[in-house]
């Protein structure tokens, strides 16, 4: 087989893995958008915040240490204990649920019936607030996140492909575990929304707010629930991205990576988020591989957006989105 084709295959595989990670972030967006019609720009920052909290709890950092030191002139930084990964993850989930409750209680409740764009801007405000809050709580230095996921090149794939083609593919173990986690997450979410009582209520709310209210579903509870789930998805995405490239500010920018995925897949479709993520992941890696060197590289920054834009011109609701029907 020619080398170029092999490289392209490797790039495609890596693109698929990256696409899974994009889909993980996009999933959080879709959940909230379906249940409350809110386009939650803060999803990326939630992932950052969740990862920061996880690292902070694991390492036993003192929250707001920097602020306390600045005000009282003390010098505290660590409690000096080390929390095991599982316990730290559970504690972080608790924090994210508390966060969901606070968001519902102090923000969403006051913005009921506002037009979608106002809610969108509110989530941008929330994103800014969380960015500052997360940094103030845990410090803004780059942190290493390790919850025991395997890392580095996958030897088995490398060997097998070397035996087949005479060229070993480089696939990161972390990407493989991310894929497995994403699949489990999607299956779990589907089962939850199809078969559990709360899941049914969630779908009812997504379908029609007023009808759901009239059969006795508590909108507020559903909102807290859905923001908690989105917080959990953000935590998973934060763990994956954080293990990959460290927990730092740029983690919040994955939201920007997930937006074209959403546009492509449709804002209201969970399968759309997955398929969109895969298309974008493969598309941008292949484009960078094939065209990137000709035009100066770093095309990954914009390719996804332009692809989604062109796509939307032909299908304005995305791949799996609900058909937009407009009435006067």
């Amino acid at each position: 087989m020619p080398d170029q084709l092999l490289y392209a295959m490797e790039v495609t595989l890596n693109g698929l893995m990256a696409g899974v990670l994009y889909a993980l972030v996009a999933l959080g967006f879709v959940l909230i958008f379906k249940a409350s019609g809110i386009f939650n720009y803060a999803q990326g920052v939630m992932a950052l915040f969740a990862a920061l909290t996880l690292v902070g709890i694991q390492d036993g950092q003192v929250p707001f240490a920097h602020l306390i030191n600045a005000i009282f002139g003390t010098d505290v930084h660590h409690f000096g204990w080390h929390v095991p990964a599982i316990l730290a993850i559970l504690l972080t989930v608790v924090v994210m649920v508390a966060f969901a409750w606070i968001v519902e209680r102090y923000i969403l409740r006051h913005l009921v019936n506002q037009p979608g764009i106002i809610l969108f801007m509110a989530t941008i405000g929330l994103a800014y607030f969380m960015e500052g809050f997360g940094d103030m709580m845990w410090g803004s230095d780059i942190k290493k996140l390790d919850v025991g996921l395997p890392q580095g090149i996958n030897i088995a794939i490398d060997d097998t492909t070397f035996n087949w083609f005479g060229y070993g593919f480089f696939i990161d173990n972390l990407d493989i575990s991310a894929t497995i986690v994403a699949v489990i997450l999607v299956v779990a979410l589907t089962v939850f929304s199809q078969y559990s009582k709360q899941g049914r209520a969630l779908r009812a709310v997504a379908d029609d707010h007023q009808a759901a209210l009239s059969v006795g579903i508590s909108l507020r509870f559903i909102w807290v629930l859905v923001w908690s789930i989105a917080g959990f998805v953000a935590l998973v995405a934060g763990i994956m991205w954080g293990s990959k490239s460290g927990v730092q500010f740029s983690l919040s920018l994955i939201a920007l990576k997930a937006l074209p995925v959403l546009m492509l897949g449709g804002f209201t479709s969970i399968p759309g988020a997955i398929v969109g993520g895969l298309i974008i992941g493969v598309g941008e890696k292949l484009f960078e591989f094939a065209i990137g060197p000709l035009v100066g590289g770093a095309t990954e920054n914009w390719f996804a957006y332009v692809l989604a834009l062109l796509f939307l011109v032909f299908r304005p609701q995305g791949l799996f989105g609900e058909k937009i029907i407009e009435r006067v």
Binding site: I107, A122, G125, L126, F129, M130
Partner: peptide, 9 residues
């Protein structure tokens, strides 16, 4: 950051 975000909200 916090104040800007808070004010927007």
């Amino acid at each position: 950051f916090m104040i800007v975000g808070g004010l927007i909200l």
